[in-house]
Amino acid sequence: MTASAHDPSAAIETIRKRLFSFPKRHFLSAGDLNAPQAADLLDLADAFVALNRQTSKSLDLLKGRTLMNLFFENSTRTQSSFELAGKRLGADVVNMNPKTSSVAKGETLIDTAVTLNAMRPDLLIVRHASSGAASLLSQKVSGSVVNAGDGQHEHPTQALLDALSIRRAFGRVSGLTVAICGDVLHSRVARSNVALLQILGASVRLVGPPTLMPAQAERWGVTVHHDMKSGLAGVDVVMMLRLQLERMQGGFVPSTREYFRFYGLDREKLARAAPGAKVMHPGPMNRGVEIDSDVADDPAVSLIQDQVEMGVAARMAVLAALAHRLEEEGR
């Protein structure tokens, strides 16, 4: 890896060697991958990290392809991450803004999909407030759909970049214990992470107040904790979730200060985790609500900045593998 980091052609060579055809036409759910496929994807993403750290980051793997960002919910960071990933791979990138276009005029999601499909995008990146929206859209388009977050259901590329960050920090995912903490109920990040981390052999705990825990979450193959101190005892990774303030229909937690007192991550609670434990957050953070700045900004424990970097690489890997499949299918 060190050698290739200084040799652009070596990084590209590694990418080409590791490039494979994505196992499905669309990437809708983290659970669609099996363990070897997830590992292949992480290996490929690793090679993209090397490329991204060079001055010349461009490749032509998506040359001639059109990538369309279709974000029904605002998300600057995820959208830019996909945009950058697409551009670095040589794709033409278009950002559609449904909020100011026809959807606002009452067009249905399927009509939008059919209309956009006529423009022949090869890769369609979709974020929508309704669970299942990406799946619905994928049934109506000829290109590949990447779910960039559907309601409270899944956000598979986030899980992939989280796994990549963990694997690079620890050298493995298998055998680690990961605590996912906070508003699990409303979190698509949590659902995708539970699935992918388990596929990769980690054991997962869910930590949060009972009102923010999904019904029968213990049947997901995880252990559920309502006391953060016991939940964090001996864990290798603490994955904090954003407290989705905008999604609260009211009354899940009494106040943000009470939430921070019992479920916010600070030094004291982090001390329960295993030595060398790392802290993650999908962003954007509510500082002082779910995470203390002191922890979030400490490079010795925080992987939060790495996650952003890994996001671009992981998405490049997904896009490259999906495009490879399109090519093999002659589309």
Partner: peptide
């Protein structure tokens, strides 16, 4: 029942549906 679209339980929770 406010806002719900599916029966509350393991299945709806996995699908991320308001229940």
């Amino acid at each position: 029942a406010k806002g719900g679209a599916a029966t509350g339980g393991e299945f709806a929770a996995r699908m991320g549906l308001p229940s």
